[in-house]
Every structure is written in C-alpha cells, then in structure tokens.
Design a protein around this nucleic acid. Structure first.
Length: 920
RNA sequence: AGGACUAUAGCUCAGUUGGUUAGAGCGCAUCCUUGACAUGGAUGAGGUCCCCAGUUCGAAUCUGGGUAGUCCUACCA
C-alpha cells in the first residue's frame, strides 16, 4: 500500500469494474427501492448542486442495495428545449446562419448532432462522482418511448377537456420568440421611471392624468379607469377621453381594482399588454388592441409614425411627443419589478397569442390531497406549506412553446382553422372522417420541456405499456431535489402521475439546500464563482481555472474581475481531493438548512480523513497479514476489543438512524468521529501493547487481530455508501481476511445495529483509562514535558475499582501515557512534591523533581480550582433553591447532588495540593 | 403586502422529547519527525447561544414581540 491515499489511481478502475459487472442493475429481492434521477440537461454539465444531489441519491441507493432491497436508480437526461435550442442557434449564428436559413428539419438534425457530441459530458461526470446508476436503462426525454408517453398524455388530457387551446395573454419572450410559463419569468426590482401623462377629456374642458412605467403601451389603451368610490373622479365615469397620438377616444370606466392612493388614482388600461388590464378589459368588454409584433416592435395597429419601431425606441418617441404636446405632466423616479425571461434575460411582454393550456386547477385537487393525506411526505416537512400555497392558487399552465426542439404538439389544422388532436395525421383523418383532399398542417409548436419531465417517474419505466418494471419500481421510493423546482417539476409530476397512474410518483420528497460559494453567493457563470465538481476531484491549476471561468464572457470588464477574484481565492489553484472526499464533504453539509455554503477548507479535512482510513488499514494489514487472526485456536478478547466492538454497535445504530431521517450530516459525523477519535486514536493505540508484547498470550493477540480486522471490515461497509471507492479498494484485501467472500463490497450486507452489542462495562472501563491517560498528558502538555520522556507516577486515594482497573490496564497506561513506574502511595505517607490529576477520587501524582516548575503547576492548579469553584457555586445555587428540589424530577436532583459531591471532593483535593505546593 | 427560513467559537456548522461543564471540523497558540498516518500526534486558548419580555424549579431549546439577513409568493399602473 502507498503511504498516503492516492484516489486518482483507484477511482476510475473501480467504477469501470462495477459497471462492467452489472452491479448497478437491480439485483432482485422482495422489497423494491427506486429513485429517478432528476434528469439533467443533456447538453449541459454538472455543477456543484448536481454533485451534491447525486451524492445523496447514490448514498441512499447504495445503502438500500446493501440492505438487500431490489434497487433501481434510473438514469436519464432531459432535452431542455429552450436552453438547448439557444445553444445551437448561437453556434449557427457564429457561422452567420439562422435556424430559419436551415429550416426546421435540418435545424432539429443539428440539435441531435449537438446532443450526440456534448451528451457525454454529463454521463462522464456522473460516473466520476461514483453514481451507481443503472446505465442499461438510460433514458432521454426525446426517446421514442418517452415521446410516445408525451403524446398519449397530451391526447388523453385533451379528450378529457383538461388541455385546451385559447387566445390569452402570455409571457412573451421577444428574442426567443416564444411564450414561456409564469415560472420561467423572474421579476427583479429595477430602477425605472413613472411618467405622468395628461389625457384630455373629449370635449375640451380639462384632462385626467395617468401614470405609467411603460409609456409605449398607451398606443394600445382602450380605457382609463378610476375607483368607483373616488369622489375626485366620479363625475367623469362614463365620459370619453381623447387618447393623444392616436386620434382615438376611449371611455372612463370605474373598477374596484384601481388603487386610489397610487399615482393620481387614474389608470390607463391596455388590455392587450398587461395582465391586470386584460382582466379588467374582459370585465368591461373593452376592445383589445395589440400594438406589438413578435419582436415587440410596434405593428400596424399603431399610428404610422411608430410602426416598425422597437418597443424602447417607441417609448422614447412617445415621451418626446407627449412632452412637445405639453401633455407630459411629470416624471418620477420609480422602483418597479421588471419581468425578464430566465433564459434570455430580456424584458418579457404580456402578448396576446394562441396557446395550449393545461387546466391545472382541476388536476391540482388530488395532488393536494395526496400530500394532505401523507401519501407523499416532504422532508423537511415545512416544504409542504410551500407546495400547498402554490397548489391552492395554481394558474393554468401554458404548455406550448414556439420552438423547434421538443415534442411537437399532436394537433392538425385544416384551412379553415379547425384543429384535430390525434397521434398522427392519418389517425386524425380517419377519426374525423376528413376527405383525402383536405389540407392538414401540424401545429408548429412544441411542448414545454417540463411537460415531458412531469411524466418522468413512469415514462422511464415503459408507460403507456404496463411493464414489469412499472409494477416493481413505481411508485418510486423517494425524490431528491432542490426547492427551486418544487413548482416546476415536483408539483407537476404529482399531478400527472396521479391522473394517469392513480398512484403517487414517490412516497417521499427529500428537499435539499442549494449549494452556494463560500460567501453564500449563488454560483453562476456570470459571477464567475462556479466550481466544477470534477475540478475538486482531479484538481486544477490556477491558469486553467481562470481561463475556464472567463471563457466566453461577453463583457471584458467582468472577465477581468473574475480573473482577479479567482487568483486571490485560489492562489495555488485547486488540489486534487478525490471523489470520496468530495462526497463526504457534501454529506457533512447536508443539514436541514436552505443554503449550503461550500467552503473549500472542509474538503481538505475530509481528504485527510480518507488518508486516515487508508493508514488505519495499512496498520491493520501490517499487523495481520501472514498472521494468525483467530482462525486457529481460541481467541481472548480484552477490554479494548470489547469496548471498540461496543462503540461500533453504537455507531452503526447512529448511522442507520441518521440515514432513515435523511440526516447525512449526522451520519457522516458519527462515522468520522468513530473512525478517527475512537478506532484510530484509541483502539489502534491500545492494540499495540498487545501485539508488540512478547509476553502477551497468543490467544490475546489473535483476539486483537481479529477485532482489528472485524471492526475495520464492518466500518468499511458502514462507510461504503458515502465513500464508495476507498472502501472498495481496502475491502478487497481486508474483506477476505475478515472472512468475507464476494466480489465487491457494493453487494455485501449493510451492518445492522444489534442491542446486545453495547457493553457498558467496557465503555466505563475505557473511559476511566482515557481519563487517567488524558490527565497525565495534560500535565505533560501544559508543562512542556517532551512526549518521549518517561514519567514515574504515584497513585493515591483510589477505591477498589481503581485498583483493579489499574492492575488490568497498567501496560496500556505505561504505553499510551509513556509512564515508567506506577505505584500506590501507602496510606498516611506523605508523597513527593508532585503535579496532580484527578480521575474521580483517584489522585494521580507526577513528581515534579527536575521536571516541573512550581509556579507553573501552581498556575495550572489555580485555573482548575477556579473552574471547579464556579461550577460548584452554580450547582449549590440550584440545590439551594427549594422549588427546584421540590418540583424537579427526583433523578435530576439526585444527579445534581452527586455532581456537587464529586466537585467538592475534587476541589478539596486540589486545594490541599495547592497548599502543599505553596509551602515549599 | 403576505409567508417561509436563518441568527450558537475567528470561519463553516451540529445541538434529538426543556435539566450537557454548550460540541465538531477548519483556523489559532505551544510542544513533538516513537516503528499506520506531518494529509500526522499531544495540549491549550476561544462563546452575552441576535435583543427584549413571558411560561417554567430550570430556556440555546417552548411562547410573544423586536432587530438583521436570505428567499418565495402577490395585481400596485
């Protein structure tokens, strides 16, 4: 074995072997356990958030696989309509080609080519993370099978009246030329202006003043509105206003929606370009004048002077024109929330178009009930509130997108605009008895990518066919996801699955936090603070990191800043830490919070932890290979052996409990603590005096070796779901030595906690031993006595148990605390001048002669005494309180009394010691 | 505007049903290349548990109010 752990050597080797051996596929068994991967964008790459999520899923999957479940982790990717189409369009644009130059068919062909070319990135990354996905069942949302499912769902929902087509206001992206759903719009506060325009009253006596943040929309105004109870304007209701610039006259209407306090209390109404105005327009039967084209440039409905102008250019012109007419009353600075497309970043326009919708309200009802009844549970539970809040106020879902990349809507139009929904043109003709010469044209639009993702849990298993996989693995066990897509994905999956399968898609939704950078900033390409998980595994030099982060930046000044920040944050680049360390870091951060700040410092600690495991194994092998480890003859198990076995049981119970409650941070902490602070720090040290003692019995040595191996082997299995690679590598050697057979640790049984395993006698004895050793080390450490120097020790005032414990453990004490002679001070005999440590009543005296400075020891005693005095005072106060003694439970009071007695005694001893020292 | 979450050591975070001397890792200080590991060992310093009030014999923990931060939802032109 190498002296230090070298992850790079072993990781890919083991992964290939596991995959080639088919270990990732379901292994059969009574109980099924399944997880569907949230499908990443096929043309994207994994970021830290993915890495986190995959690690959690893999831990769950490996854990349950080892527990004997028939385990499926379904892998697959998503076609990511808008994102992917944008990427390919950008590539074409670089060659001066637009998708329209190519035409639909060729463009889609290009996208498929790009998918083939880039699709490997994700799957490569998933493998590097150690994810034990069943690659033989890999799916893609645009696969024939999944496409069939999409079509089936669309047609059935349409026939059930749950999908409809309608002319509505949608969120229109004027750059991408598509509608997007409410969820794909992000509204951030931006600094803008509020323009006040005077609209003259028809008839020429005065005006009303309206305020707007989007002056250009006045060209489409069809009314102005006031509050019905607003006395200032009640006389105007029903009168007409001369809309400037257009020559149109529009009515003054009254509507409750108007806020009398805001602006002038008069609102211009543009039903075709504002969601609220749209509703009001419908209430009042107002005409809807659409003034934009698909680019959000002014169309022919507007006065000639504005036609063809971009919306922002038109805005300037409108303002200038109003100003010159003397109708611009004032301009205020105004903060408003500007809606932007989450992909394109451009300002979204409410735009009147024909789109397809899902009647979400209808489908939400059972979906709400499923969570209310507990059929689906969120972890942590509070996310259920978020889910309910959204579901109870759900809006119809606009599912059509004006894109070329995606599932084309199975609807055909004849020349008079009638449409027919069906699986194919032929079927539509047959079903509707259309003549052969009727010209039909398929809907140009595709479906929202989330529409196909919503079917993911069952479409991947072969639906609409009733496959054995569906029967076995659906509903799935748990969905692991971030809270940011509860609405996008989780809610829609629940709705679709309940509707088409009459069962839930998953029993549990585990919602994890979002990975942020060390400052708590969201990781994003434009901020340049993204870390590629692979770079943490393999390491990356500074120059490569800088160029990776600044590549393809549109704004050079941004690149310069990122360059600088990266250099200061990672002056040495990033060291290679390996997958196991990265994964363990993820687990340690996976608590219940919403944000996960990824501090690079932590991964280093867990790299060290890997090394610790590695070296512990090295030690075990050095001492056990070619040795009798309990195979021949009997074994004798000493105190240390019984103790570490007991601790192992406790750890097993803790880890099992933690995994059951999705507390991977607690699981990883329990494992870390056990391996490092118990097994390595104490047990390995305690094994040395046995193994290296020529006088120790062969049976004791066998017992120690057996325990070393048994505990290590069990620990490896406990650790395996969290650190798959290092555990497999070591287990290959250690497993057989511990009597295990089998080709891989992956398929070994997971350790189960047993009640009889906890040995409280051994625990207490070792605690005593540790107390003595730490007491002496403390003196050594504080007095700067070199660790190599043997110390003589005198004991005083111990009880019978102290005496027997000493007798049994003298050799351990001598070795671990580096002691020379240990002897009891006869009663009544005055000992030498000494430094003191206390373990219960037992006094441990380290003679100071030539070793210890008197003042230093006095100082040390003083500190200790003060600490005890403070604590004693606190407890005395407590016990002096009559109502405490009366009302607190018996056991609590008794414990406090015991504590007080122990403290008093310790204090007296130390004070006596101090007196003696002073007298010198 | 409504709601959620967060606030504990210099930093990142644990702290189960109220009773702990409030913990861990990293960092820091001192010492140490003893034969698993310097990616190591030993020891130590470091806390007004955000603030105020309440419930209680007892509050980091429960309740109410406040402050700060993060986020989500919402129709303010």
């Amino acid at each position: 074995m190498e002296k230090t752990f070298q992850p790079a050597d072993i990781e890919t080797r083991w992964y290939q072997q596991w995959e080639a051996s088919g270990y990732f596929a379901p292994q059969g068994g009574e109980r099924a356990y399944s997880i569907m991967i949230p499908p990443p964008n096929v043309t994207g790459s994994l970021h830290m958030g993915h890495g986190f999520q995959e690690a959690i899923m893999d831990a769950l999957i490996r854990y349950h696989r080892m527990c004997g479940y028939n385990t499926l982790w379904q892998v697959g990717t998503d076609h990511a309509g808008i994102a992917t189409q944008m990427v390919v369009e950008r590539q074409l644009a670089a060659q001066g080609i637009s998708r329209h130059d190519l035409g639909r068919e060729k463009f889609v062909q290009k996208v498929w080519e790009w998918k083939e070319e880039s699709g490997g990135t994700i799957t490569r990354q998933l493998r590097r993370l150690g994810s034990s996905l069943d690659w033989s069942r890999e799916r893609f949302t645009m696969d024939p099978g999944l496409s069939e499912a999409v079509q089936e769902v669309f047609i059935r929902l349409y026939r059930e009246g749950l999908i409809y087509r309608g002319k509505r206001l949608v969120n229109w992206d004027p750059v991408l030329h598509t509608a997007i759903s409410d969820l794909e719009v992000v509204a951030e506060e931006e600094q803008g202006q509020l323009w006040h325009f005077n609209y003259p009253l028809a008839g020429g006596e005065g005006h009303v003043t309206v305020a707007t943040t989007r002056p250009e929309t006045m060209l489409g105004d069809t009314a102005v509105a006031v509050h019905p109870a607003d006395e200032r304007y009640s006389h105007l209701i029903g009168r007409m206003v001369a809309l400037p610039l257009t020559g149109r006259e529009i009515p003054v209407i009254a509507d409750d929606y108007v806020d009398r306090e805001f602006g002038t209390g008069v609102v211009k109404i543009t039903p075709a370009h504002d969601f609220n105005d749209y509703e009001m327009g419908r209430r009042h039967g107002l005409p809807m004048i659409n003034i934009f084209n698909d680019d959000a440039a002014i169309n022919d409905e507007a006065p000639e002077a504005y036609r063809g102008l971009d919306r922002f250019e038109a805005r300037k012109r409108v303002i200038a024109e109003m100003d010159s007419l003397g109708l611009l009353a004032k301009v205020d600075a105004h903060t408003l929330r500007v809606p932007r497309g989450d992909r394109s970043g451009v300002v979204i326009e409410p735009y009147l178009t024909d789109q397809w919708y899902v009647d979400a309200r209808e489908m939400a009802r059972p979906a709400i009930a499923a969570v209310e009844s507990g059929a689906i549970q969120f972890v942590p539970k509070q996310w259920e509130n978020t889910y309910f809040a959204w579901m109870r106020d759900i809006q119809d879902w606009c599912i059509s997108r004006q894109l070329w990349w995606g599932h084309r809507i199975p609807a055909w139009y004849d020349e008079s605009g009638h449409f027919y929904v069906g699986a194919s043109e032929a079927e539509v003709r047959a079903d509707n008895a259309l003549a052969d010469d009727t010209v039909l044209r398929q809907d140009e639009d595709v479906l929202d990518t989330w529409f196909s993702s919503a079917l993911w849990t069952f479409s991947t298993l072969g639906w609409p066919q009733e496959t054995p996989e569906l029967a076995t693995f659906h509903p799935t066990s748990v969905l692991v996801t971030g809270f940011d897509i509860i609405f996008f994905w989780v809610a829609r999956m629940i709705m679709m699955t309940l509707h088409f399968r009459q069962e839930v898609p998953f029993h549990t939704v585990y919602v994890h936090g979002l990975v942020r950078d060390a400052e708590g900033q969201k990781m994003s390409k434009s901020k340049g603070n993204v870390i590629d998980p692979i770079d943490l595994i393999d390491g990356i030099d500074l120059e490569s990191l800088v160029s990776k982060r600044t590549a393809g930046m549109m704004q050079p000044q941004l690149a310069a800043r990122i360059d600088k920040a990266t250099r200061s944050q990672f002056p040495e680049g990033i060291a290679p830490y390996g997958t196991d360390a990265l994964r363990f870091t993820y687990f340690s951060l996976a608590s219940t919070g919403r944000d996960i700040k990824f501090d690079i410092g932590r991964i280093e600690g867990y790299r060290n932890f890997c090394n610790k495991i590695w070296n512990a194994a090295r030690y075990v092998l050095m001492n056990c290979e070619q040795q009798d480890c309990g195979g021949d003859g009997g074994v004798e198990l000493g105190l240390a052996d019984r103790w570490i076995t007991s601790k192992l049981q406790q750890t097993t119970a803790e880890v099992t409990r933690a995994v059951a409650s999705y507390r991977f941070d607690l699981a990883s902490q329990a494992l870390y603590e056990f391996v490092w602070n118990e097994y390595c720090d104490w047990y390995l040290e305690l094994s040395k005096p046995v193994l290296w003692d020529e006088k120790a019995s062969a049976a004791a040595k066998r017992g120690t070796r057996q325990t070393l191996l048994h505990v290590l082997e069990t620990t490896l299995r406990l650790l395996h779901p969290f650190m798959p690679f290092i555990t497999e590598e070591i287990w290959q050697t250690v497993g057989p030595m511990a009597g295990k057979t089998g080709p891989t640790i992956m398929l070994q049984p997971y350790p189960q906690p047993s009640h009889k395993g906890v040995d409280s006698v051994a625990n207490a004895d070792i605690e005593w031993l540790k107390g003595v050793i730490v007491g002496i080390r403390n003196i050594r450490g504080e007095m700067n006595i070199p660790p190599g120097r043997e110390l003589p020790v005198l004991l005083r005032n111990g009880n019978e148990q102290d005496r027997s414990r000493l007798e049994e453990n003298a050799q351990f004490l001598k070795k671990l605390a580096k002691l020379g002679d240990i002897s009891w001070l006869p009663p009544g005999e005055e000992g030498p001048v000494a430094a003191t440590a206390l373990v219960g009543e037992l006094e441990i005296l380290v003679p100071m002669a030539g070793l210890i400075d008197k003042d230093a020891e006095l100082l040390r005693l003083r500190r200790e005494i003060e600490k005890l005095e403070k604590e004693l005072a606190r407890i005395r106060g407590k016990l002096g309180n009559a109502s405490f003694v009366d009302k607190a439970p018996e056991a609590v009071v008794a414990r406090e009394r015991e504590k007080m007695q122990a403290l008093q005694q310790a204090l007296e001893t130390l004070q006596e010691q101090e007196r003696q020292l002073r007298q010198l």
